[in-house]
């Protein structure tokens, strides 16, 4: 009896160890107001370093090999390239004026940038630092999503309230789908069959079928005790298995967890103030949110969908990306 208990405890410890964060990942957070980038160890949940970057850093992404961070320095009108081993800026890309958000092609070779001031999407070849194309889209382009096969790019234009589908070979807009007011973000499901587009002012997320290019579902949110106008969806992250979508609700200070089959909201997770963007650790066990008005990020355990801890970063954290290894 006693022996059994011991072995059960030992097994529990072993499971605990295996279930714990076995790998240390690095999260990079752009601090819009602080003109800085916070480097966070996802295991210890501590800021290990803060580096100065260009003015008004917003969109942030990382090369597939984890060697370079790309950062939109909006007020410097450039995309800065930062070596992750030295955290030094090693170059910049010609993004066009006021870059805000971008997306990297799955092969890591091409960067697609939304230029809000010019109503353009700029296509940049990273190796040669050349602009390959400028694609006219709607007013104030922002959200950028790319299909897993890299063939379809989706850009959202905020004042036009459309999701523009762009063929990445021809650089032509093939379809423009009306969504609710002020679309901010576009995210493909891992199988590439759908694009989820958040509408900040409209307060909804539109699910668009990538084949028919029709809105198949509009997801609404309601949090007891909160006024409807505070619910302003921005960032969308979908799990690698495609089962759950996490949606940052801005000044509602919550992240919604949505079942991608039923489109039902399963839970609202309280995080920090004005939550905008999200990123999973590569093992999918943790989701990190950026909370602009409380100057912190929140770690969410995706197994329980409970917030684990919030960590203060720089001034007005905007975007977050996590190293692939």
């Amino acid at each position: 009896m006693r022996k059994q208990l011991y072995s059960a405890a030992a097994a529990a410890i072993a499971v605990g160890l295996a279930g714990g964060p076995a790998f240390a990942y690095t999260a990079y957070v752009s601090n819009e107001k602080g003109n800085s980038m916070s480097i966070v160890d996802t295991t210890t949940m501590k800021v290990v370093k803060t580096v100065d970057v260009g003015q008004r850093p917003r969109g942030i992404t990382i090369s597939p090999d984890g060697k370079f961070v790309y950062l939109c320095a909006s007020d410097d009108d450039q995309v800065q390239v930062i070596d992750t081993s030295t955290l030094e800026m090693v170059g910049s890309l010609p993004s066009g004026p006021d870059p805000e958000l971008f997306v990297l092609s799955p092969d890591g070779k091409t960067l697609y940038v939304a230029n809000e001031d010019d109503n353009l999407v700029t296509v940049i070849d990273i190796a040669s630092k050349q602009v390959l194309a400028e694609i006219p889209v709607g007013v104030e382009p922002e959200g950028m999503g790319i299909s897993p096969d890299g063939k379809t790019l989706v850009n959202t234009s905020e004042t036009t309230s459309m999701a523009h589908f762009i063929d990445t070979e021809t650089h032509e807009v093939t379809d423009s789908v009306l969504v609710d007011t002020r679309p901010r973000f576009a995210e493909f499901t891992p199988d590439g069959s759908q694009v989820w587009v958040s509408a900040e002012v409209g307060g909804t997320v539109s699910v668009i079928d990538n084949k028919t290019r029709q809105v198949v579902k509009k997801i609404n949110f309601a949090i007891p005790g909160l006024r409807a106008e505070t619910i302003q969806p921005v960032g969308v992250s979908i799990t690698a298995d495609g089962k759950k979508a996490y949606i940052a609700l801005g000044p509602a200070n919550h992240v919604a967890v949505v079942d991608t089959k039923t489109y039902e909201v399963e839970k609202y997770i309280l995080v920090g103030q004005r939550v905008w963007h999200l990123a999973f650790t590569p093992d999918q066990k943790t989701l990190i949110t950026t909370n602009g008005n409380s100057n912190d990020i929140t770690f969410i355990d995706t197994a329980t969908d409970e917030p684990v801890q919030s960590v203060t970063v720089g001034q007005q954290p905007w975007g977050v990306v996590i190293s692939p290894k």
Binding site: P136, G138, V139, T159, T160, S161, M162, H164, V173
Partner: peptide, 10 residues
């Protein structure tokens, strides 16, 4: 001008 940018797609 903004209406016409949108109008191009409509």
């Amino acid at each position: 001008k903004d209406d016409n940018t949108t109008g191009k797609f409509m």
